[in-house]
């Protein structure tokens, strides 16, 4: 079954590539705008040896990784504090409800004013935008912790801090992890939007703008392809880590169903 699925997936991708190539070969589409699939793939392969692209990719990755780390460092404690202190959460909630719907890329122009360093700018917008899913997931997760589990520990004389660390945090962890995975996706969008908007010397967004300026559609789409593949890999890596770390969660959720 699994075997057939993989085969089908491979066949689907191959079919898509072949179809795109054939459409390109018929000349129906001007290949200055949409290059042939083989040209795009060749462009993508060339990029791996292209020092400039590699430096750009590294810059984007650094901003993404740093931003995400900082986001986790800020958003998880913030979420825990709000989740553990309901009166504070109630007071802050209207502010969150007004701030969260602001489309996150809209803060980039403001950030451009505040940060002169490109890395700082990118990290800052990532932290702003990617914090929401983590904070919100953490608050909800803490609210859903089984009260019996907490009371059990409390009855053994543990204080509120150890209850938070020993019961609330572990049972909230799977939801926090999901929040981080969502945040990772948001962070990519923000880093690249910031690159496109604020410019700078290095970054995949910058590379793509330059390729577009030089009419190198093949390199542009090749770079986009790599970005997509990176997204698939990083997402499945995070899913795999979640599965491994939180196997108990799946089992429990399965049993409850």
């Amino acid at each position: 079954m699994e075997h057939a699925r993989v085969l089908r997936g491979v066949a689907g991708v191959a079919g898509f590539l072949a179809a795109a190539e054939i459409v390109g070969a018929t000349g129906l589409i001007d290949d200055r705008f949409l290059p042939r699939m083989s040209t795009i793939l060749r462009g993508a392969a060339e990029l791996l040896a292209d020092q400039e692209f590699l430096a750009d990719a590294r810059a984007t990755l650094v901003a993404w990784g740093l931003g995400l780390l900082l986001t986790v460092a800020v958003a998880v404690p913030a979420g825990l504090a709000l989740g553990a202190l309901p009166p504070v959460e109630r007071a802050v909630r209207p502010l969150i409800e007004f701030l969260r719907p602001i489309p996150s890329v809209a803060v980039i122009p403001l950030a451009i004013l505040l940060f002169s360093d490109n890395l700082h700018l990118r990290v800052a917008v990532v932290v702003y935008a990617a914090s929401w899913p983590i904070v919100i997931n953490t608050i909800y997760a803490l609210r859903d912790v089984d009260p019996l589990a907490k009371e059990t520990l409390r009855s053994f004389g543990f204080g509120p801090v150890s209850v938070l660390l020993r019961v609330a945090l572990p049972s909230a962890a799977p939801f926090i992890a999901t929040g981080i995975r969502v945040a990772a996706g948001t962070a990519v969008i923000l880093v690249i939007s910031a690159e496109l908007l604020a410019g700078g010397a290095e970054g995949v967004g910058i590379y793509i703008m330059e390729a577009a300026g030089g009419n190198r559609m093949d390199l542009m789409l090749g770079a986009t392809l790599w970005a997509g593949l990176f997204g698939v890999l990083s997402n499945s890596a995070l899913v795999a880590v979640e599965r491994r770390l939180f196997r108990w969660h799946d089992v429990r959720a399965g049993a409850a169903r």
Partner: peptide, 24 residues
Amino acid sequence: GYLDPLIHLGRAVPPPLLVPFFLA
């Protein structure tokens, strides 16, 4: 089965990257 990998790839492409492409 045929489309799953393509869908996952499409979803993972950061949409802003395609703006210059759509513009061209």
